[in-house]
Design a protein around this nucleic acid. Sequence first.
DNA 1: AAATCATATCTATATTTTTCGATATGTCGA
DNA 2: TCGACATATCGAAAAATATAGATATGATTT
Lengths: 100, 100
Amino acid sequence: MNVVEVSKVLSNETRVNILKWLKAPEANFPPHQDIDHFDDGVCVGYIQDKTGLSQSTISTYLNSMQQAGLVIPTRHGKWTYYKRNEEVIEAYYTTLKEVL
Amino acid sequence: MNVVEVSKVLSNETRVNILKWLKAPEANFPPHQDIDHFDDGVCVGYIQDKTGLSQSTISTYLNSMQQAGLVIPTRHGKWTYYKRNEEVIEAYYTTLKEVL
DNA sequence: AAATCATATCTATATTTTTCGATATGTCGA
DNA sequence: TCGACATATCGAAAAATATAGATATGATTT
């Protein structure tokens, strides 16, 4: 976990919101068509709808978040689901507390 | 305390280092000429020396850190001392934990 | 196999951030 | 009050980020 890299992700309102929403997918997103759970997170399209930004922008965001280790992608058919990576998020807190 | 604004500050290695160093000034900086304590933090010149960056860059950094509420400046004669603002740093942790 | 759908990647432009040198401001000492 | 010193601010160039449309890839459906 790289503090600077994670901080870059968090220095954008939309990306912070995505992480926030993914904390409670049932409350923030409609149910998926093919699956009846959010165990692997939420598909890109739903996240895009909620932000109002373009598909490519959201895909880029999610990619940077994945690079930083904050989210984990899982492919289900034609959809990619993204969920939070709680370990890395926790590690960010911990490292900040230690280092800062 | 604004999460995005603070995150922007933390998305730079040098600025993270400055906060780190200011946690233990005695260990990281030489004693000041005019004062024999670090109660108000460390003067800009010492911080600049330690980073190797230009005077104007460090002044800009410290200004952005102050805007974000992370540090508090105090003027002593011709020197400006900067110290950490523990309350805001703590608020950042707390808010992250809640929000994220 | 072709059309369709979801997502990723590429390319390009606009905006923001980084960083510096030059200059301004404020303070002290001669 | 004048020069020297510490810091702040200004203006500019380079680098990074944001964002979108176009296109590519991978999977499903017909």
